[in-house]
Design a protein around this nucleic acid. Structure first.
Length: 319
DNA sequence: TAGGCCATCTGGTCCT
DNA sequence: AGGACCAGATGGCCTA
């Protein structure tokens, strides 16, 4: 193709390549380059194949004129090709649609990845250099939501160790180590008790006797490893509420947060809250004055405490 | 070198 | 007809 002597097919390749590249990455993104191996070995051949077919078509057509009849292998082959030839313009349209569909699919996946990047930034342990994998990001996000919901449900300062344990449920060992590592960066600011041992979260989580034991055994392990003594513990009720990993993984889980919106926001309200005002989740709930769904002072205070706690908990991770 | 992760292509299905 | 979504296939890159 790069040979100067090679005559370009009717469909100019540069045009096709430009179509297949994301609009904003047409010249810079190496991974989207049409010259990656997949393209040269597969797509390019496929793009050119119709041209080859066209040449074969002409050859077979001339052979037919030379006396090939129905039933001849060559003619059958020709008939097959003829079917394509009959819809040659349609074939071109199909090819073009396929190329456009590929571009759309690529953009769609880019959008999905962008959303995933956004998610990475709001879960603990965000790092530009060491990105969490997609699946680990989703798992961590699930655990994070669950853990924060637990905090909301109790309104108590959480046990940090249990908090991190909850975050690490179902995560791979490297990610667990990463989370623990993030924690230990500033562990001294949280672990006030002298002589606190290094966290062995993975072993704490991945060697306990199974999901059904999350309530008892896991919490037991948690207690046995806990460096905080009897310091508060919203996660104490791991004993009587399903853990984020009660289903063992994101893939199979039917997990829902441990409490619902009503329980969170109806402390002073008998009426359900306006869900629309929480369209983007807790972080983005607007507290609009004068609305019929105004939160009472207690709610605001609780929420303020929650944000404060959340901020504090996230410090070691986001740093 | 095997395995994990990822990007991309592709064909099928569903919906508008 | 065409777009969105999905899952399988494929190959590249990276790391233990």
């Amino acid at each position: 193709l790069s040979s100067p002597s090679a005559s370009p097919p009717d469909l100019t390749l540069p045009t096709i390549f430009m179509l297949t590249l994301p609009f904003d990455e047409q010249s810079s993104n190496q991974t989207s380059s049409p010259f990656r191996t997949g393209w040269t070995s597969n797509q390019l051949v496929k793009l050119i194949k119709p041209e080859i077919d066209s040449v074969q078509e002409e050859t077979l057509e001339s052979r037919r004129e030379d006396g090939f009849r129905d039933g001849d292998v060559a003619y059958l082959k020709r008939r097959g090709s003829q079917k394509k030839k009959l819809s040659h313009s349609r074939l071109d349209r199909v090819r073009l649609r396929r190329i456009e569909a590929n571009a759309r699919e690529r953009n769609r996946m880019h959008g999905l990845n962008n959303a995933l990047d956004s998610l990475r930034k709001v879960v603990p342990c965000y790092s530009k250099t060491q990105k969490l994998s997609k699946i680990e990001t989703l798992r961590l996000a699930k655990n994070y939501i669950w853990a924060l919901s637990e905090i909301l449900s109790t309104g108590k300062r959480p046990d940090l160790f249990a908090f991190v344990q909850t975050l690490c449920k179902g995560l791979s060992q490297p990610t667990t180590n990463l989370v623990a590592g993030c924690l230990q960066l500033k562990a001294h600011s949280f672990i006030s008790e002298p002589g606190a041992e290094s966290l062995s979260l993975y072993s704490a989580y991945h060697h306990h006797p199974g999901p059904e034991a999350v309530g008892s055994s896991s919490a037991g392990i948690s207690r046995s490893l806990r460096p905080f003594g009897s310091f508060c513990g919203p996660f104490e009720f791991l004993n009587d509420s399903p853990s984020p990993d009660g289903s063992s993984s994101l893939d199979t889980g039917t997990l829902s947060p441990p409490i619902n919106f009503n329980r969170i926001f109806s402390l002073k309200h008998e009426e359900p809250i306006d869900y629309q005002s929480c369209h983007y989740g807790l972080r983005y709930c607007s507290i609009s004055q004068g609305s019929s769904t105004d939160l009472g002072p207690y709610d605001i205070q609780l929420r303020g405490q929650f944000y404060q706690m959340q901020e504090e908990l996230n410090k070691p991770f986001h740093n």
